[in-house]
Simulated scan of single mutants.
Amino acid sequence: MELLKRRICIIGSGEAGLHLAYALKDDFDITVMERKSPDQFKKGRIMSTQVHFGPTRKREKRFKMPNWEDQPLIESIHITIGNEKLFVGMLQEPALSVDQRLYYSYSINDLIENGVSFRFEKVDKEDLDILLEKYDLIIDCTGKNGPLFPFPTEESLTPFQTPQRKCIVGYFEGIKANNPLGVSVTVLPELGEMFEIPALTEQGPVTILFVMVVPKSDLDVFKGIKYAEDFTLKMRNTVQQFFPDIHTRIDEENFALTDDNAFLQTAITPVIRKPYSLVKNKLVVGCGDSVFLNDPITGQGCNLSSYCAEQLYETLMKYKDSKWDIEAGEYYWNRTKQYVTEVTGWTNAMTKPLPNHVVQLLLQVAQDQAKADEIAEWFANPTKAYEAFFLNNIN
């Protein structure tokens, strides 16, 4: 007689929640609690930017997540400081960006077709006692607004008490793609950064313009904008004034948001938490932004969520036939701690003026394609970026 599968409740179906639902569904009885239906995701406002670098795409293949490989892939990273284009580094493995509205809605429907139970309702803190009784484990994947459970803050990894950037995002048509197809990173010292990201939406290929603004700087001009038409006009003017390379590729007649919900303004206070806790003598764990929330400046949000989901999967498989207790929680944290520390260290450093040795490295690399490719790989393998910033490892 087959033993009953242990019951796991995943709260939230963002990057971490979806990775875990796919990874765990064959070995456990999975229920996902999500306040938005697939249709609400699809018709709603954009939630973020996203670039799935090579390691994340490998994890998606491992867990048999939906395949988007027939879409244009991101091959490169273009680096500009001020108005000087320094170099284009080629990625070892191509990356991909899919509008999360499309990615989430498609994945949820696919999971439902494959037998995963979804409950489309908001979970409040007063609901947690009932869930604790009903399930063997709860995984908090509530994202940037979480967590629901009291995961303790890791003070050494949480130096900021306020947002370091304002995040201004729009998904646009009418921009000629850069060549080779890639993510463009423009650093304007003391003002902020621009990330230009080719992406796939339900309407087809688009360009994400993601401005990270130092508060109260000359780039801080989007405050109070609430309507798509006003946002488009302000972005056009901002690009013309501060980002001339992108402006030369704009088709003025066709430059527009993909839809009226394709823009976003937000600000994030980074906070890193220990991703496990005992609540009423039961282990609860967190995964993704609910416990590992970094500034978006290095584009690591979905990649860190994917990484930590895989580490949690490995933990739960190791303890599949054992008690899920503090030992299991500590094992999960030990698997993730070094990587989380390196991603967080690099990300926090990027919100400050670039260290002189890093600036010198970027300037030197302009004439060395192999070195340029190594720096492009920082985004796929943040450990290398951490070493360059903090260990002066530039070889």
Score class of each variant (00 low, 15 high):
Lys274Ile: 12
Pro275Thr: 04
Pro275Asn: 11
Tyr276Asn: 06
Ser277Ala: 13
Ser277Leu: 10
Val279Pro: 02
Leu283His: 02
Leu283Glu: 02
Cys287Met: 11
Gly288Val: 13
Gly288Glu: 13
Gly288Cys: 15
Phe292Asp: 02
Asp295Phe: 08
Ile297Pro: 04
Ile297Asp: 02
Thr298Gly: 01
Thr298Ile: 04
Thr298Trp: 01
Gly301Val: 09
Cys302Glu: 11
Cys302Met: 15
Leu304His: 00
Ser305Val: 11
Cys308Leu: 07
Ala309Ile: 07
Glu310Leu: 13
Gln311Thr: 10
Thr315Asp: 08
Thr315His: 09
Thr315Cys: 10
Leu316Cys: 06
Leu316Ile: 13
Met317Asp: 10
Tyr319Asp: 03
Asp321Arg: 05
Asp321Pro: 04
Ser322Cys: 05
Ser322Tyr: 09
Lys323Phe: 08
Lys323Tyr: 03
Trp324Glu: 00
Trp324Phe: 01
Asp325Arg: 06
Asp325Met: 01
Ile326Pro: 00
Ile326Gly: 01
Glu327Phe: 11
Ala328Met: 05
Ala328Thr: 07
Trp333Leu: 14
Lys337Ala: 11
Gln338Phe: 10
Gln338Trp: 11
Tyr339Asn: 14
Tyr339Val: 14
Thr341Asn: 15
Thr341Tyr: 15
Glu342His: 10
Val343Asn: 00
Val343Asp: 00
Thr347His: 01
Ala349Lys: 09
Ala349Ile: 08
Met350Gly: 08
Met350Gln: 10
Thr351Pro: 03
Thr351Leu: 06
